[in-house]
Amino acid sequence: MNELVFIALATLMFILMIALAVMVIRSKDLIKAAILLSGVSLIASFVFVLLRAPDVAMAEASIGSALTAIILVFAIKKTNRFEEGGEEK
């Protein structure tokens, strides 16, 4: 792969990942945060493919973006959906 394309893709992915991570921390709705977190993992799995680690990418894609999100959602359903002072949206 061309070096320039590699740098451009990596930069784009890291910008997206950090933006999603900041949104995870800032959002008051926990279910929204869980879904954004699975987005972070999905992009991380793409970065693993860029780093020539297809095994790790497969594990990250299925664990990070499917199972972690679903376990978080089950836990949120047993507790509060909103952070304190966040229900007015």
Binding site: D55, A57, M58, A59, A66
Partner: peptide, 25 residues
């Protein structure tokens, strides 16, 4: 398939098992 071909292609026991678990979801 993924965990049967773990020594030939990307994948393996961990990935295959997790794929089956997400199928059960």
């Amino acid at each position: 398939y993924v965990f049967l071909h773990g020594h030939l292609s990307p994948g393996g026991g961990f990935q295959g098992g997790v794929i089956i678990a997400s199928g059960m979801l």
